[in-house]
Design a protein around this nucleic acid. Structure first.
Lengths: 372, 372
DNA sequence: TTATCATGGTATAACGTTCTACCATTTGTC
DNA sequence: GACAAATGGTAGAACGTTATACCATGATAA
């Protein structure tokens, strides 16, 4: 929509509730005017007992229409909002679910969060996200914080090398937890993850079928289990075709790190004609690096990403990648944690979702001279 | 780092705590073995009173070293974590701060979150992020949720057209709140925002000095105040130079929307030689659109973004933009909300941070024939 | 009439902490 | 040896809800 406007300031009026002047107000009025309303206040104001007010607010029990309306009206008038701490403490349940994940900024994670949030919302739960650090001791504190605040459930991407004590903590406190991506074998916890090995195997097979013989793996750091699986899928496929050795290059999970890693690798391993990446971000970085070196992704060197984030399709050139749908993954996470909350004794579930090869423009047959 | 490895599965051992078999366990033992530990449990086990245990856990009062150690040891042994609901209800304070923001996936927002989280963490607070929707009624519920769960403070990007009642709610419940980006004039609330008008004025002036005469504004939707200010800075600058009329094009805040908006505008307003954008994402989209049309950003048409997200520098070509440092903005937000919590009666603060022009490669003098 | 039963409401004890006030000891002081 | 003061600890109420058990009514049935 194209418009020609002469913009003007947007003016907004606030109703100006007079702030109570404490000095001039007699005691008996003061409370009513300024104190944060509690159930007692509502009950007194409506002329009923606290118990009745409570029942009305929750819509339980047998209350006549007349009193119900009376109570609701005064509650609204006083801006009453129940104190969740007290309610949850007494009733023993909460409607708040925690999500501990590192790197919120990562678009893949962001889309997962979105999926979780929407599903939980539709079920009447509230999601609060913790921008975790991928660090075991720090993480322990954050898990404790979740326990302290009595979340109804927890969705958790465990840090690398999470010690067993952290899992014990969750068990002691009976916190319904689903692990995501990492630690699929944590005993007693639900898990949702990705078929990592199968995915990279698929990607590698595809590259081999295109004619590539010298294929590297790029991205990820240290001995994260997820990455180890992806590397396994990649290297086992190489081995099955009598190719090798596997070439694995570390890189942090951002574009710049991907660029430098790719640049360094091309220098030290000039024979490589194709790269399987640990994630789209790194893959896009690698693609940028090629461009800066005057090479054309998909023709000079092939690149396969992982995740299929939104930018994968918009990159130049558009990125071939292993697609998992992060939003749907998020919804699934939400579903599982709710099921767990509702049936705490059900046997733990384990679900690994497949990743599909999406061919775009960063892959192609190797240049004729390459494998000569 | 390039390594040749023969990958193997990472094996992890979990200590297998025997899950108590409820059927076989006599009553008096059952509680001790399986029940979630509370202060009472710790106290009993350590042979002290609940009050003493409480003091030890909080490090207050006068407790001998001997008992302190005894209590701490049993607390650790039992995996005790205090119940924050009870603690907070009684003591009246909480260490948890809420952040309600829409579009977590937006890299600008993600970096802000990171800044807030780090600062709060260093002050011993926990940040929980809510993936809000930019919608007034939905938002109201989310604010209520924050009040219900008694957060110590709140950082909030108000939705468009937030009704006055929502502000009243915050006031009634005395929730220390700092608004971010929008609603700088909400009475009694701290605010941190950006000098939007000045920034777009700067961008527009720069384009005019380069020789452009036909400049459009691209991005944003509806009458969001932030965008209105940016449009004001842009159009006032045009007017001051005797240029006009202002051309304003709507677009949602993602790359694809930016692409289509740019494409449509170029069709309907062929004379335009430069574009000031409402955000980097849209600007990058616009840049992509130009490329698809066979035009070169910075030479055929100039583009200025807003935000300076990480991708701005990495885009092809690198994006000229108005830089605000989202991470630092986040830290500032954290600081302000903590100050507010510590001094509830202090006068509300208002701080608008400037944006700096960062010239990269999407801007340049107009093509010779353009303004002829 | 009296027993029975809905109906609508209330009193009160939890929930797991922290805070206030208080009670024993021991130590120090004259 | 008596008093004050310091030391180390405890009992019990309170925070704002919800759950349980109970109590009035008036209506229905025998």
């Amino acid at each position: 929509m194209v418009t020609r406007i002469s913009p003007q300031n947007l003016i907004k009026r606030y109703t100006c509730h007079s702030v109570a002047k404490l000095d001039e107000t007699p005691d008996h009025q003061r409370e009513q005017m300024t104190e944060k309303p509690k159930l007692q206040t509502v009950a007194r104001e409506a002329g009923v007992s606290v118990a009745t007010a409570s029942q009305v607010m929750r819509g339980t029990g047998r209350i006549s229409d007349k009193t119900r309306k009376k109570v609701l009206k005064t509650a609204k008038k006083l801006n009453y909002v129940p104190d969740g701490r007290a309610a949850s403490m007494r009733s023993g349940d909460s409607r708040e679910i925690g999500l501990a994940i590192h790197q919120i900024a990562n678009p893949f994670n962001a889309e997962v969060i979105s999926g979780v949030s929407d599903l939980l919302d539709s079920e009447g739960y509230l999601l609060s996200v913790l921008d975790a650090r991928d660090d075991a001791t720090h993480q322990r504190k954050q898990i404790e914080a979740f326990i302290r605040s009595s979340r109804a459930g927890l969705i958790w991407v465990p840090a690398q090398n999470t010690p067993a004590e952290t899992f014990d903590l969750l068990k002691t406190h009976r916190l319904p937890t689903v692990t995501f991506l990492r630690e699929p074998d944590a005993p007693g916890l639900d898990h949702i993850g990705i078929e990592n090995a199968k995915a990279t195997a698929k990607a590698t097979t595809y590259l081999i079928e295109l004619g590539h013989r010298n294929i590297a793996f790029l991205g990820g750091t240290a001995r994260v289990a997820v990455r180890a699986e992806r590397i396994r899928g990649y290297s086992e496929t190489l081995a099955r075709h009598g190719l090798g050795p596997a070439i694995v290059v570390d890189s942090a999970d951002d574009k710049i790190a991907g660029m430098t890693a790719m640049t360094e690798m091309m220098a030290s391993q000039p024979g490589v004609t194709a790269v399987v990446c640990n994630g789209d971000i790194v893959a896009i970085g690698a693609s940028l690096a090629l461009a800066r070196m005057g090479l054309l992704p998909g023709s000079d060197v092939s690149i396969v990403g992982f995740d299929d984030i939104q930018d994968a399709a918009l990159a130049t050139p558009p990125l071939t990648t292993m697609a998992v749908s992060p939003y749907q993954l998020g919804q699934k996470l939400g579903r599982v944690v709710i099921d767990r909350i509702r049936a705490p004794e059900a046997p733990p579930s384990l679900s690994l979702v497949p990743a599909d090869l999406v061919v775009r423009e960063t892959t192609g047959a190797p240049a004729a001279h390459a494998n000569a």
